[in-house]
Amino acid sequence: MLNQIALRLVLPLALLIATLAAADATAQRPQREVKWVNPQVANVKGLEHKVLASKSLGHDVGYAVWTPPGYDAKGATRYPVIYFLHGAGGTEASDSGGFSSMVAGKIRQGDFPPAICVFPNGGMSGYRDPVEAMIIDELIPRIDHDYATRAEAAGRAIAGFSMGGAGAVRLAILHPELFCAAGSWGGALSRRGSGEDSPLLPAAKTAARTLQANHFELLTINGDQDLPAGFTPLGKVLKPLEIPHQVVTLPDTKHNLGHYYERSAETMLTFLARRLRGE
């Protein structure tokens, strides 16, 4: 009897100690350091690294810009712009070479309109708060000032992977006056839970008229092992509003950008090309 009583007392105490130890370990675990300026971008023709003195962030932040072959810097030709957002742990250099090279290939084939690609550094922000303000209030106006862009929603699309995919959808819904399309690879309303309580759901309803006026369309691509229902609640909101939302589920695919490139680059780039042509 005494042994049973002792066991009943020891087990909860051991559980409490283990819980406190785990919490302490989490508290002590260093957060991933964010390097805000990363000038070593891929050696791709037309790709340049730039630095923005951001008032929103309170420090410099890097971004990369790719201009298409034959880019007319004098402004006689105006170009649409794609903003591509990296995933958690990435930087402005992470995807700039790979994504811009895919766009360049499609332009050479005549399957994509000549376009500018911009790659912001979002740190680990989820593209919220100061980073959101940096992109919306500082970077987009800077790009429109410095480059020969079509500075209107019809000439601006946003896409990304993982945190960047979710961020692309988020920024497009919260700033519906800015974009005609958003594309997400491996994103979700929430990495935990169903996303039914996401603030983007009421925001989409509020933004509906502007999204409709800009002929906004959404493409979400997820692996069957990578939150394939990650945007289902948003799709349910968009459907009665008659805002197109194409959902693609890739078989045998986990959370790997290389696999998304291999298995659905054609789908994503065809979607972005169609929207930037106004089709």
Rank of each mutant, 00 (worst) to 15 (best):
N121E: 09
G90Y: 12
Y147W: 13
D95G: 00
G155H: 06
S94Q: 15
G87P: 03
P120R: 03
D111Q: 11
G98F: 15
R142K: 15
A153M: 07
L85N: 15
R142F: 14
G160H: 05
G160P: 10
G155N: 05
F112S: 00
A151T: 02
K106Y: 01
Y147P: 12
S101V: 09
G87T: 07
I107H: 00
E138P: 08
I135L: 11
V118Y: 07
S96A: 15
T149K: 04
P141Q: 05
S100F: 15
Y83V: 03
Q109S: 01
E92Q: 08
Y147Q: 13
I107C: 10
Y83S: 08
M134P: 08
R128S: 13
F112W: 12
M134H: 07
G122D: 10
F84G: 07
D144T: 13
F119P: 01
R156L: 11
T91E: 10
Y127E: 00
A159H: 04
I107Y: 05
I82C: 11
I143E: 04
D137S: 11
S96M: 14
Y127I: 02
R128W: 06
R128A: 08
I107M: 10
F112C: 11
R156Q: 12
K106G: 01
S96V: 14
A159W: 07
P141V: 11
G110Q: 00
H86M: 13
H86V: 06
A153L: 10
D111N: 04
M124N: 09
G126R: 02
R142Y: 14
A93K: 01
P120V: 08
I135R: 02
I116E: 00
I158H: 05
A151L: 01
I116W: 01
R142Q: 14
L139M: 10
L85V: 14
V103Y: 09
A151W: 00
